[in-house]
Design a protein around this nucleic acid. Structure first.
Lengths: 111, 111
DNA sequence: GGGGTAAACATAGGACTCCTAGGGGTGATC
DNA sequence: GATCACCCCTAGGAGTCCTATGTTTACCCC
């Protein structure tokens, strides 16, 4: 059952992650916090969504990772964009623009 | 594999259909044409997506259907919005607004 | 020292949605 | 009478997100 709680539209998450990583190297756990913070709590990213997404982005060559220690003294996997990932982000953003415009065309149609 | 061809964002289709049906009673086949036309060919709705969507919208009580004949003299299943469907469309449109705003917040973040 | 909490990672399984690829019937057109 | 456009339908697969659960380590408090 698709209920109203499904906040993140399927297919959007990758773009959001790429965008946040584009702001600077960052580890997974912090990505989810950052997305939540920037979106003013609209997106509450679950870890069960986050980590699989990170792995597939890495597998596809959009992200590169290495282990470093955080401010709080723990080991964490820091991600950064690859060149391919930067391109991907661009095309995804353009696609998002076109898509939302197409939706807007329909939603604004008054008979 | 998620490639760039995936035009319709999962979860958006129901809203688009409800909106088009809200413009006036219309049968399934015409819905897909109308969506394609209004969106200036951006959305090319497949029948394998359309009909299952119509059935679930009907099952959930958002659409009501009856058979009538078209201009071209064929039998077709005409859909119209129920009261519940009209409410659903409203909440989906509000949700869409909030969601795209949240995405915009993230996409426009320039460190 | 022991217990609790937050940070940080991970995976399995289910639900849902969309698409591909079929199938079928009818009216119009050449 | 064959082809095309119209009009409906379903099964199966791929992909994405979520729930639920598990692990380890740093920190805090008593």
């Amino acid at each position: 059952m698709t209920d109203e709680k499904t906040a993140i539209l399927k297919g959007t998450l990758d773009m959001l992650i790429l965008k946040v990583v584009a702001l600077g190297p960052i580890h997974g756990y912090a990505i989810s916090q950052r997305i939540q913070q920037i979106s003013k709590d609209y997106f509450q990213l679950q870890e069960g969504s986050l980590y699989p997404a990170l792995h597939r982005l890495e597998n596809r060559g959009f992200l590169a990772a290495d282990w470093q220690s955080t401010d709080t003294g723990r080991e964490a996997k820091f991600y950064k964009l690859t060149r391919k990932g930067r391109k991907r982000l661009e095309t995804e953003m353009e696609g998002w623009e076109r898509m939302t415009e197409a939706v807007a065309l329909i939603l604004r149609t008054a008979e």
